[in-house]
């Protein structure tokens, strides 16, 4: 475990917790793509199948449980909570995320480390995480609504990607040149999509600030 990876895990965790807290506190989820949150939950479930079979460390197991429960809580609030679900932009959150699930699953069937159920699910979760932000990106481009996408949320998402890329560079130079092209290529695609998301977030935030300025 190196500092980059630990900080990456912490900022990733904070991004999920900040969103959950925001929805819990304000009881609204306008501007948040439920589809992206459902994809994130699927990413965690598909990747953490080894939660009950392989024990790596207490940290690893605790973090997996926290990631799954907090992302499940966000989906629960947006689907089931009577007050929150009313504020979900159902008509705007129209990205066909089932296409993303199917495409990444086929990709995992073709490109994986081993053709076993666990490895195909692991590769699937890596590919899906890379594109999971797309429904949220489309929703943001369409609505420019950053009410629930707080600056902290976006900051932690960005920090998570930055630290993980530093982690991969660090591991590449210290642990030998294992072929880790699956997380590397998917990670680069994911970072590119996040950069696009940050661009539209900044545009929306800038417009909001202009709107709020006294006329």
């Amino acid at each position: 475990m190196n500092a980059f990876r630990f900080l990456g895990d912490m900022t990733h965790l904070f991004s999920v917790l900040v969103l959950l807290l925001k929805i819990y506190a304000t009881k609204t989820c306008s501007g948040v793509s439920r589809k992206t949150q459902e994809l994130y939950l699927l990413v965690f479930v598909a990747r953490y199948l080894d939660l009950f079979t392989d024990y790596i460390s207490l940290y690893n197991s605790v973090m997996k449980i926290v990631f799954i429960t907090s992302s499940a809580a966000i989906v629960w609030y947006m689907r089931r909570h009577p007050q929150v679900r009313r504020t979900y932009d159902k008509e705007q959150d129209t990205f066909r995320h089932s296409v993303l699930v199917a495409a990444t699953f086929v990709l995992a069937l073709i490109f994986n480390d081993r053709f076993t159920f666990r490895e195909i699910c692991w590769a699937f979760s890596i590919y899906l995480e890379a594109v999971a932000i797309l429904p949220q990106l489309v929703l943001l481009q369409r609505c420019r609504n950053v009410d629930n996408l707080t600056g902290q949320y976006v900051f932690f998402l960005g920090a998570y990607r930055a630290f993980y890329i530093l982690n991969w560079i660090y591991r590449y130079f210290t642990e030998g040149h294992h072929s880790r092209w699956i997380p590397w290529i998917a990670g680069l695609v994911q970072t590119g999509l996040y950069a696009d998301f940050f661009y539209y977030y900044f545009l929306s935030w800038k417009n909001n600030v202009k709107l709020e300025l006294p006329a």
Binding site: I56, D113, R114, E119, P183
Partner: peptide, 10 residues
């Protein structure tokens, strides 16, 4: 399979 590179990461 957590022995495979990258599989110990979250």
């Amino acid at each position: 399979s957590s022995k495979l590179p990258g599989h110990d990461e979250l």
